[in-house]
Nucleic acid binder design. Structure first.
Lengths: 294, 294
DNA sequence: ATCTATTTTATACCGGCAGTTCAATTTGTG
DNA sequence: CACAAATTGAACTGCCGGTATAAAATAGAT
């Protein structure tokens, strides 16, 4: 992307953080980023489109940062989950994401509204997928409800906690508390066997975003963790981490690279290792087959 | 209030429901309600002030309707609580209250913002007070947290449930589910003895809205219920219900009327009844004393 | 019925907004 | 240098919330 355009995005974002979206006029943006009106409308067709560019950029950043915490870690580790939420909340606060979101959500621009709705959905889906990682498979049918309730609880807790203690910046405590309640919530919902929604609704809400990929990521992480348990060879650990990173975070994972790394790993055989490595290779093979089928 | 002014309020509210607040121009309101610009600014100093008039009117209505469900009922009855929430949610939907709220919440008008913040607080406080009615006294220290989490859960549940089933209008199911989870939440929080906020924060959040009144209402309801248990005389039940209604719902309860009713009740003595009636009279006396002290 | 005071109306006006258009200018590139 | 692309900035449209005001309608009191 044009660096000038990127700079306009950054400057405008800064203004939106300070003054809000509605209260920032295009003239303000022109003055602050030192471009002319003609250039602005050359870059963006409207103020809304600029905002979408900002959200898209931020969304990619937080997604990446969030997932980086998971590299080489056990996805069922609650501590990692808490760290991810903490990261997300600090990110929200730093960039006034929720404020901008609320301000603009009820908008006359239907395109913008759809866009924000989808972002909201993807946020819930992320939480849901992480809950699938965190809890037993038998809980899965209840975890969409729990993800929805958890986000509601968490955001309300944060909102009112900071209203009561404006000076504190202690997200950690609120998140820990909310996650503790979440655990009770999951067992309670499962105990009573009650549903509101079932995870199958994802096909309707986010079609074309197959959740099998998410399940795959979890299995991949487990498999790689198992392999790492049995070696203490820094180089091979790096290679395994690279595979995980490449498969889970690249938009288009480079198949040839991953296969090369797998081959390289196979050359250094050890007892019991070979079988697990084969199973990893199988899994990745099925993943690429599934991707190409789409 | 001027009936013409009230009509403008109604017409404008209708437009806000249909098109939203921002998207409705003052000219729209003038055309739709058939007044001139001069008259509008004679009634309201700004568009925001008109909105505040709408919110104030609606807030009084929902408060009254909500409390009417409680007359002559046991405040610890969960079914009544569910009915109240159901009423509130249908009211919200009918008048697009939450939508208007969100749309306007991030506003440049600081007065409007404060006003809406206070409405939000009063909503949480109402939930909190009802939870105090519903659960054991020992749970009270955890009930503010639970009220905050419950509203978050409930609103998210409703939002996503209706997104999944747009045709259904079945608030009941979602509310029942949310209340079921709430019960688990309360025991869970109490079991772990964890806090985020303590109810003492109310002094800071809504100063001058003493919660003793709320506690009084509960005690009054209990006392009146006890009295009603021992009689099956329709006329006296009506009189007791009148007292409860007058004290809890009138802005300025008419002391002389209540005293007259109490005297009338005392004339019809029965065994064991007199003592409880005296205690009721004492309680009401202290209430008025407290009110006058403010 | 008449006089007076208030309310209502209609219209023009203000500054500011998002967005369009376009001719002139600058900049990058071979 | 020359040519194309990007950039500029001012003028313009139509809408907004809000102000100002003179004329007309209405209501109330005598």
């Amino acid at each position: 992307m044009n660096s000038r355009k990127q700079q306009v995005i950054n400057r405008a974002h800064q203004l939106f953080i300070e003054k809000g979206f509605q209260a920032t006029s295009i003239q303000d943006i022109l003055d602050y980023s030192g471009i002319s009106k003609g250039t602005f409308y050359n870059y963006f067709s409207s103020k809304s489109e600029l905002l979408i560019a900002i959200f898209t950029s931020l969304s990619q950043r937080i997604d990446q940062e969030r997932n980086e915490l998971l590299i080489g870690q056990d996805p069922s580790n609650k501590e990692i989950f808490i760290q991810q939420i903490e990261l997300q909340m600090e990110f929200n606060q730093k960039h006034k994401l929720l404020t901008l979101f609320e301000e603009v959500f009820v908008s006359n621009d239907p395109f913008l509204k759809d866009f924000l709705n989808q972002m909201k959905m993807m946020y819930i889906r992320w939480i849901y997928n992480r809950l699938v990682d965190l809890f037993e498979e038998s809980m899965r049918p209840f975890l969409l409800d729990c993800a929805i309730m958890f986000t509601g609880m968490l955001h309300n807790n944060i909102h009112f906690y900071f209203l009561a203690h404006p000076s504190l910046r202690d997200f950690r405590k609120v998140i820990q508390y909310s996650v503790n309640r979440l655990e009770g919530l999951v067992v309670d919902a499962a105990k009573h066997g009650e549903h509101l929604l079932t995870p199958s609704i994802w096909d309707k809400w986010l079609p074309g975003c197959p959740t099998f990929e998410e399940g795959f990521k979890k299995k991949l992480a487990n498999s790689i963790n198992e392999l790492k348990m049995e070696i203490h060879d820094g180089k091979r650990i790096e290679l395994l981490d690279f595979i995980q990173e490449e498969v889970t975070h690249s938009k288009i994972p480079r198949k040839f690279l991953i296969e090369a790394v797998l081959s390289s790993l196979e050359n250094q055989q050890e007892t019991g290792w070979n079988r697990k490595l084969d199973s990893l290779r199988d899994m990745i093979g099925r993943f690429f087959a599934g991707q190409e089928a789409i």
